[in-house]
Simulated assay, not measured.
Amino acid sequence: MTLIDTHAHIYDPQFTDDFDALLVKADEAGIRQIWMPNCARETIDSMMALAERYPDRCLPMMGLHPCYVTETVEAELAAVESWLSRYPFMAVGEIGLDFYWDLTHVDRQFEAFRTQLQWASHYKLPISIHSRSGHDRNAFTEAADLIEKLALPDLTGIFHCFIGTLDEAQRAIDLGFKLGIGGVSTFKNGGLDKVLPHVDLAHLVLETDAPYLAPVPYRGKRNEPAYIKLIAQRVADLKQVTLAEVADATTANAFSFLKNFPVSNH
């Protein structure tokens, strides 16, 4: 059985002391690849070190995370553009909108998101979208509105950490996106138990968002790629299919994004 973790910050300092053990556990759980979204300039070096050390296992994205958008956004975007122009990343990410903490830099977030959507279209790369709501603003809706408004060619990707409604799931699918399903699917009040039974496996990929959002029974502890199997089992239970069916479908869905990425044996 092969599984893909389509979103994990395994370059995070929380993994420094036991990274080799983390990879061994991932292997034992059948995790074939771990996709690494970038956050900002400060995370590039550690992410790229893993990408170079494990080129077929740890696949890097390049982007500016909305939570890292501040007055320095122009310099941050310049670094993203420089890397995208000279290195074969598997996606642009993680990018998007975050209204959870405050709205101080929302205008800058929109500019950064718009710019990076255009780069993704230009380079024909999928995107990993972060959309976290707050302050009575729906980040998924506003992200989807911008994507529809721009109508860029060749734009596809994943709505990372999808926790929306069935209507929102269908809207994402209609836009040509997959839904990234993670640890929240295992939470008692996560809400996805009302959505996933009605969404075809063809539209799902799996993720951990490690070291964050660990699934039950590890909720509140450090998350890691090996826990993808718990998420896959939760999806299987909700959809009343086998774990193998979930693994086969979500892995095929993930591999469909790698058409332009030079990774071996995918």
Score class of each variant (00 low, 15 high):
1 M>F: 06
2 T>Q: 12
5 D>T: 14
5 D>C: 12
5 D>E: 11
6 T>L: 04
19 F>T: 15
20 D>M: 07
27 D>W: 02
28 E>H: 05
28 E>L: 10
35 W>P: 05
38 N>S: 15
47 M>S: 10
48 M>A: 05
49 A>I: 11
49 A>R: 13
53 R>I: 06
58 C>N: 10
60 P>S: 12
64 L>S: 08
68 Y>G: 05
73 V>Y: 10
76 E>F: 03
77 L>T: 04
81 E>C: 04
82 S>N: 04
83 W>Y: 15
83 W>I: 12
87 Y>R: 15
89 F>Y: 13
91 A>W: 02
99 F>Y: 15
101 W>C: 10
102 D>Y: 02
106 V>A: 11
107 D>V: 14
108 R>S: 13
115 T>C: 11
115 T>S: 15
118 Q>L: 09
120 A>D: 08
121 S>E: 10
122 H>L: 11
125 L>S: 00
126 P>W: 01
127 I>N: 00
131 S>T: 08
132 R>H: 06
134 G>C: 09
135 H>M: 05
139 A>E: 02
140 F>H: 06
144 A>G: 05
149 K>T: 15
152 L>E: 14
153 P>C: 06
154 D>A: 14
155 L>G: 06
156 T>F: 02
158 I>A: 01
162 F>M: 05
162 F>A: 03
163 I>K: 01
165 T>N: 10
170 Q>K: 08
170 Q>I: 10
171 R>C: 07
177 F>Y: 08
178 K>L: 12
180 G>R: 01
185 S>A: 14
186 T>S: 14
187 F>T: 11
187 F>Y: 14
191 G>R: 04
193 D>A: 12
194 K>G: 11
195 V>Y: 02
199 V>Q: 01
201 L>A: 06
201 L>E: 06
204 L>A: 09
205 V>Y: 00
207 E>D: 12
207 E>K: 01
209 D>P: 02
213 L>F: 07
222 R>N: 13
225 P>S: 10
228 I>V: 15
231 I>K: 00
234 R>Y: 01
234 R>M: 06
237 D>H: 00
238 L>P: 03
239 K>Y: 08
240 Q>I: 05
240 Q>C: 09
243 L>P: 15
244 A>R: 07
247 A>K: 01
257 F>S: 08
258 L>S: 07
258 L>C: 14
259 K>Q: 07
260 N>I: 09
262 P>H: 07
264 S>Q: 13
266 H>Q: 05
266 H>D: 12
266 H>F: 04
